[in-house]
Design a binder for these strands. Structure first.
Lengths: 236, 236
DNA sequence: AGATATTTGTACGTATGTATT
DNA sequence: CAATACATACGTACAAATATC
């Protein structure tokens, strides 16, 4: 049984998306929504708060609740998105993943410190190359704490590791820290990517954490300059 | 007078930051916090919800509220941050802004479409170069809808335009869409930046919106490759 | 395994405060 | 000044998930 506030939330989202509630217009007041949905004021407020969190509306004390422009709303594909998820969304590209290696290594002092584990702890290292439309444009180096992501195989790494973690292992991913910068291309990059003469690569370093707060992954995703694009939406 | 829930929120943030409530531990239960702060359960819950929104804790029905690792919390400098804000935070760099030009132009059909205004509408264009430690590393091209950001002068552009908008104009910025990509350096880039032989620049295109949803700015921020870094935190 | 207690989630109601119209 | 609309705060009751005995 869906909570009542979520029902109200979904109804309002529909009205915003189908144009019944166009951008820049005011939502019905809390009192009106109470009567329409036969809910208490707290429940209506919870639904509106959710709308604001998701970026559909903006509340203004004394004035009302305003629908934000569709541009912003259509932009909701941020968050943690893996390579295959991202490209499935973007449409018809010929995408291929080659697993170069899938081995276990021992954590160096530095890595142990990063992951908050003891030095020598087993880590699983996966190296993959992503080919889009015949060009090798992304080189991924994943490092997992083996005990937190057990049973990784080359076969699994060929698909979506995140799907394996969430569906097979049943663990929930909470958040990821992300750093984006440019670095000079290394010899490894030259070997594994079709650089087409570019001298630098874009490096995305991703640290991913479980719900319980355990740091279980650090990934370096090395992109060819001209095939890289990142979008997001930032709220004050 | 600060709302009670914010007082509770700040108290708990302090305890998390000074280590009284270390990572991975459980917060006192809602009942305990009610007694400690002599507040109702709803008020305590609102404080905890705020903690979760800011990424300090994670709530779990039936289990409790858990403090997330400090790493994540120290990472809270995301959102919309202007150039001077960002560098004031990062520490002692010698930062200088040169305003190349500050003129008004008429919106082309394409620009008018972007901003949802009529073609020919007046736009204010500002071109600036940012020098850090003696090197010209960022070239900013801002476009503002003049009627939405009136009174811009070269002098204001030499400081923080965002501060002018929020403090002098008294407008509130709501959100920004951001795109990050690499582009080949243009002749303009070569002229205004110390490229040091790099062939590409990182381009951040920023579209900024007021609370009321009006799109008032598009900025291109062109960074020298090796001086660029972007961090954020993504939550599922 | 099962009953019970604990902890967070949802929902209702009421009163009062603050910002805007 | 009054009416409207959102914000805060209190209280109560029951549901759902988890922990404990």
């Amino acid at each position: 049984m869906m909570p009542k506030y979520l029902h109200i939330y979904h109804q309002l989202v529909s009205r915003i998306q189908d144009g019944t509630l166009p951008a820049e217009t005011k939502l019905p007041s809390e009192t009106e929504l109470m009567h329409e949905f036969e809910a208490s004021r707290g429940t209506v407020r919870k639904a509106i708060d959710a709308l604001q969190d998701k970026g559909f509306v903006r509340k203004h004390q004394g004035k009302g609740v305003f629908v934000l422009s569709q541009d912003a709303i259509a932009f909701q594909f941020n968050g943690i998105v893996s390579f295959s998820e991202a490209h499935r969304q973007m449409g018809q590209h010929d995408v291929k993943t080659d697993v170069l290696s899938c081995t276990t290594i021992e954590a160096t002092a530095e890595l142990a410190n990063q992951f908050h584990v003891a030095p020598g702890t087993s880590l699983t290292e996966v190296k993959r190359v992503r080919t889009i439309d015949g060009e090798r444009v992304i080189y991924d180096i994943n490092l997992f704490v083996t005990s937190l992501v057990p049973g990784l195989t080359t076969e699994i790494a060929g698909g979506s590791i995140y799907a394996y973690i969430e569906q097979t292992l049943g663990r929930q991913i909470s958040y990821a820290k992300r750093k984006i910068e440019a670095q000079p291309a290394t010899i490894d990059d030259q070997q594994h990517l079709d650089l087409e003469g570019t001298t630098h690569v874009i490096v995305i370093t991703n640290d991913t954490y479980y719900y319980e707060g355990q740091h279980f992954e650090r990934t370096q995703s090395r992109h060819r300059l001209d095939k890289f694009q990142f979008t997001d939406i930032a709220r004050r």
